[in-house]
Amino acid sequence: MSPNPMSPNHTQEKLVYMANQIGKGFTMRKPEQAVLDIADHLKKFWEKRMLAQIFEHLDAGGQGLDNLPKQGLQRLRETMQ
């Protein structure tokens, strides 16, 4: 689903959309490698308030997040702790 620009949660919806896009970019890798690559990509390119917002969303159940990016985010958070 594309983010709805009129939504009050536009930024969060957009971040979920972007994370899923990144996930698709790495889909053809082996799953474990894809998770690492997604985590690495998010760490390298996402600013901290973007990460904070998506982690918050992840904590709330991560609705809309595909499996690979969800795992990538979990992996990233583990490495950041």
Binding site: T11, F45, W46, E47, R49, M50
Partner: peptide
Amino acid sequence: AEPGLRIPNMLDAAMDGT
């Protein structure tokens, strides 16, 4: 040591008030 905001993210953050 952390990446900053890209242009579209700057504008999103502006809409969010940060």
